[in-house]
Nucleic acid binder design. Structure first.
Lengths: 183, 183
DNA sequence: TAGATTGTTAATCGATTAACAATC
DNA sequence: TAGATTGTTAATCGATTAACAATC
């Protein structure tokens, strides 16, 4: 049984991923067809296909504004890279006060550098983790400089032009949706 | 015009809240009817009704596990209280290493205290912000002790019994949904 | 062939939005 | 009365899930 090819079913994959098997099959369908009916997916084929798809997409550059507790956590958060994003620069009002772990490769800069970096790097997306008070003016500057999409962790509703998309992350809301299940 | 009652329309409210006016009216409808057709909502009536509704609901107790950068940010995050939750205790593997801002009222404890606190306080909900490696075993302990709902910031899919609800917060996913709008 | 499992279509569900009668 | 705006129903949309023919 040396050449045995390991296979895995959509239901097995779905179980570990925490989704329904139907959903998983549908999602895989967007990438291509590499399952075998009655058998499942060959692990090596699937793994290669996924790597190829992800690898083909180059990382999208993102900047982070506000490096307090939350900002620092986001910098260290591995997930962005996995989903195809790279935080290429981070900005804070008081960069000298921020202590980053030594393993961080991102250069921390003052707010006055932000506009220039967005322009020269052609940055289109920004993550905001600044205090509520500062949020609107930071957003204005981002949009002015050319940012088209903002992931906003500040507890404020940002007013931006219609061409700009804002995604507000409301952590408390996530908790609320859970509370319905607690009795 | 001394006794003039200020009113506000659903569209004005919706604009600042960043939602559609229809949605706002519908949401208010769940609480009760206090608008006046053709006129709008009287600010003081509306404000009182909302306060009463929110005040009536007592705060739900939640614990936080893992007080690294992200955990510390969550502790300081004002939004939970606003939505009716209160972080009543925080636990970390190395509590002595964690430096919290002086304004924090939450007592930080070691992991060995966790089970007892959940039991004695009857805690039903937990927020997890621990490293991926530790996530599953922490989840097991939480569930063992009686927690029924987990808000999980750790980048892991937790395997728990069907009676327990897990809400995974995937920050990268939020960013991904934005990227469709960037061209 | 019989059992298993994919790929995909159709049904379901929930949430959002449009539309409009009620009415101030 | 005419204009404005609510409260609510119906339509729309998107995402999830069930179901099943295809087929290994």
């Amino acid at each position: 049984m040396d050449n045995a090819v390991e296979t895995v079913s959509s239901s097995a994959l779905a179980a570990v991923a925490g989704v329904k098997s139907t959903q998983l099959r549908k999602d895989l369908g967007f990438v291509g067809q590499f399952g075998t009916r009655g058998l499942g997916y060959k692990v090596d084929v699937l793994s290669e296909a996924i790597t190829a798809t992800l690898g083909g997409t180059s990382l999208q550059s993102v900047i982070l504004v506000g490096v307090g507790n939350l900002g620092a956590a986001l910098l260290r958060y591995g997930g962005f890279h996995r989903e195809g994003f790279e935080i290429v620069a981070a900005f804070d009002m008081y960069p000298q006060d921020v202590k980053l772990k030594a393993d961080s490769k991102v250069v921390l800069q003052g707010m006055d550098e932000m506009w220039g970096v967005i322009q020269s790097e052609g940055i289109k997306m920004a993550i905001m983790a600044v205090p509520a008070k500062a949020a609107q003016s930071v957003a204005n500057e981002l949009v002015d400089a050319g940012v088209q999409a903002i992931l906003n962790f500040s507890p404020t509703v940002l007013q931006v032009s219609d061409q700009v998309v804002v995604n507000n992350v409301d952590l408390a809301l996530e908790l609320e949706s859970l509370s319905y299940f607690v009795r």
